[in-house]
Nucleic acid binder design. Sequence first.
DNA 1: CAAAATTAATTTGCGTGCAATTTAATTTTG
DNA 2: CAAAATTAAATTGCACGCAAATTAATTTTG
Lengths: 158, 158
Amino acid sequence: MTTKAAQFDRLPDEALTLGKQLCFAVYSAAHAFNRAYKPLLDRFGLTYPQYLVLLALWQQDEMTVKRIGEEIGLDSGTLSPLLKRLEAAGYVGRQRDPGDERQVIVSLTAKGRDLKTEAFGILADIGKASGCSLEEAGEIRETLHQLTRQLSSGESES
Amino acid sequence: MTTKAAQFDRLPDEALTLGKQLCFAVYSAAHAFNRAYKPLLDRFGLTYPQYLVLLALWQQDEMTVKRIGEEIGLDSGTLSPLLKRLEAAGYVGRQRDPGDERQVIVSLTAKGRDLKTEAFGILADIGKASGCSLEEAGEIRETLHQLTRQLSSGESES
DNA sequence: CAAAATTAATTTGCGTGCAATTTAATTTTG
DNA sequence: CAAAATTAAATTGCACGCAAATTAATTTTG
């Protein structure tokens, strides 16, 4: 098989199709997940990124805003208002770290911890709705991780 | 602090892991694509969904708002303001269909058609940045399409 | 044919997502 | 030690994305 670069040079039409279909497939799949999640999360008054934050906290309580952002890939500009909503809903508390007043430590309230029992299972529902076996899911996850890494690695250029 | 975490250990672990990993992988991949696209589209002052609309129009000019929405999976609530921005940027025109005044027909301006020559290649750049062969890309696309279909099919339930 | 139902866009409201700026606290340094 | 640089959150501005309400036009119907 020829190199990938040579393939692209020789098949511009297919490269175009490739880019279009790949991007759009990921774009559509993300929307499909969003729509699948929404009715399940609505019962708890949660959005998907809010649920991601809770998943992270159920795994490891008491994290700074920055740490949470690293876990789920969001910056403070998105997280600050989101965390305020989670706080207003009574699921988390926010307090300045006495040791470093720049940092805010986010922790689960009793209500937030209790929610785990009810809401953690949403993941299982989505798993079922996806119609995948554990093996298939693992492959898809790995493939997408590699794709994500590959795309992220070329970010510095412009 | 590790008071009572043990009570959750008997949930269906496989389905949980599956759901979590699948969702997050797709979520992350979509963001990675967004970040990869952004610098390429910024040169034209376009966002990704705006680019999707132009891709659709380059393939088939003169579509109604509803038709465009069906092509790229967005509703009029998202498209109306987006199309106004594309119009303000001079890429498209919008006019009521004389035959049915409810409908608005979106068409490329000369500037919008000219953009195709410059901007269509962005897809190929992303194709390269993805580091995938045509075969791999095709497999990923098919897998995600199936996943999307599967997730969408269960929407009517509640 | 006129009232009711349907349809296509628009508008409104809310929650992301991200870039850029601001504020406050901590480190670095000169 | 004080000024400068760095860091963590919060804030601001803009553009989705979607649900719900609104407006205007067309079909259906009684």
